[in-house]
Every structure is written in C-alpha cells, then in structure tokens.
C-alpha cells in the first residue's frame, strides 16, 4: 500500500490519507475484534453474574479435566506463536516459510478443536451434562458452559478456514503480507478470548477434593 504515502498528499475526501496511518484492512480487523470482544464480554459477564448469584457447582476434577483443558490451552498458545512466526516470515518476504507457519497454526488449531470436541463428547456421554440439563444442581451450568465454549470453538473453526484460505492464496501470490498479518490478528484474538474463558469457566469450576 505504497499508494498510501502518495495518497496522503491528496485531500482526504478524494481518498487521500490513511486513518491512523495503517492499512484499511488492518483497521477494519481491529474494529471487528473490538466488536467481537464485546460479544464475548457480554456472555462472560452474564455468566459471571449468574455464577456469583447462585450456589455454583464445581465438578471439574483436576485429573483429568483441568489437566486436559490446560493441554488445550497450551496448543492454542503454541498456535499463536507459530502465527507470529508466519507473520514475521511474510514481512521478511520468505513466502514458503510463511505458508509453512500458517499451516502449522491451522493444524494446532485443529488439534485444539479435536481435543475440545472430545471433551464435549465425554461430558455429554459420561457425565450426563448437556446444554439443557446436568446432574450438578444448577440448571444453567451446562448451558453457560456449552454456549461460551461453543461460541469460542466456532471462532476457532472459522479461523482455521480463514488461515487455510490465506495460506493457499499467499502461496499463489494472491495475498500480501498485510493480509497475513490481518489473519494473524484474528487468530490472536481467538487466543485472547480463550485466556479469559479458560480461568473463568474451567479453573473456577475446579472441584474441591
């Protein structure tokens, strides 16, 4: 977007000037991230409210539930690291390396989704915990759990698809490093949300043995 430098000389209403001196795609992605984080905040605050106002069950045993969730968190954090490597490689012009790191990010994200789905199935089959009922006492326990983790998982799956499209297109030369960076922003946002979901939903529900 070297046109941006030239465009800065044009009058603003003629398309000149870049707001906040960044590419428009990046700016747009930041606006989306802010709005999406408000969505998650609304859900997490509502969950916190309901949780604090009631006798909330704490059924997740440290072994294996919390350890499992911690492993999931480590996979997601690692995917953030590989994404950062990918963005850095893209900016340095190492196209093949960047594509490799983007695929690595997508794979780690897919492992996260697989582990998460396995946990869901275990909860539903073995613990009798569904979005509409559970055997722990508070009827909303399952509902809030599946809603919040489900919405997050949906974001992860969408992110994997997004990363795949960017990886394939970047290899062909269709996308620029800025596109890779914008995809990275979305992926880090997904990780960011998990940083809040994990303590609030899992760690606070650790069973007191």
């Amino acid at each position: 977007m070297s046109e941006a430098h030239a465009a800065a000389a044009e009058p603003t209403w003629q398309g000149g000037g870049t707001p906040f001196a960044v590419g428009l795609k990046k700016f747009g992605m930041w606006l989306f991230i802010v709005s999406d984080s408000l969505t998650f905040s609304a859900l997490l605050i509502a969950y916190s409210y309901v949780r604090a106002a009631n006798d909330w069950p704490t059924p997740f045993h440290f072994f294996p539930s919390i350890v499992f969730a911690t492993v999931m968190t480590l996979f997601l954090l690692s995917s953030s690291l590989t994404m950062v490597y990918g963005v850095s490689a893209a900016h340095h012009g190492a196209r093949r390396a960047a594509v490799k790191w983007i695929w690595a990010t997508a794979v780690l994200g897919a492992v996260f989704v697989a582990l998460h789905s396995y946990e869901w199935l275990h909860l539903m089959r073995d613990e009798g915990m569904y979005p509409w009922q559970n055997r722990y006492g508070s009827p909303l326990f399952g509902g809030t759990f599946f809603l919040i983790t489900g919405l997050h998982m949906f974001h992860v799956i969408t992110g994997i698809a997004y990363l795949a499209i960017v990886a394939l297109g970047y290899r062909r030369g269709k996308w620029t490093p800025e596109d890779v960076e914008v995809a990275g922003l979305y992926w880090h946002f997904v990780d960011l949300v998990w940083m809040f979901v994990f303590p609030l939903i899992y760690l606070l529900s650790t069973s007191v043995d």
């Binding site: 977007m1 870049t18 707001p19 906040f20 960044v22 850095s88 800025e178």
Partner: peptide, 28 residues
C-alpha cells in the same frame, strides 16, 4: 489526525517487523 504518516511505517516497509523472533519466544 495530528501525527504525520511518516512516523508510523506501513506493513510493506521492512522496518515494520522490528520485533525479533527471540522476543516472541520470550513472550510465549
């Protein structure tokens, strides 16, 4: 906007990636 465009480099500029990999590892 107040701040001149030149102070903040755009993504295509090689100077944009001024954070090095070791720093990212430390953050991780």
């Amino acid at each position: 906007g107040g701040v001149s465009v030149e102070r903040y480099v755009l993504p295509e500029d090689p100077a944009y990636e001024d954070a090095h990999i070791p720093l990212f590892n430390k953050i991780w």
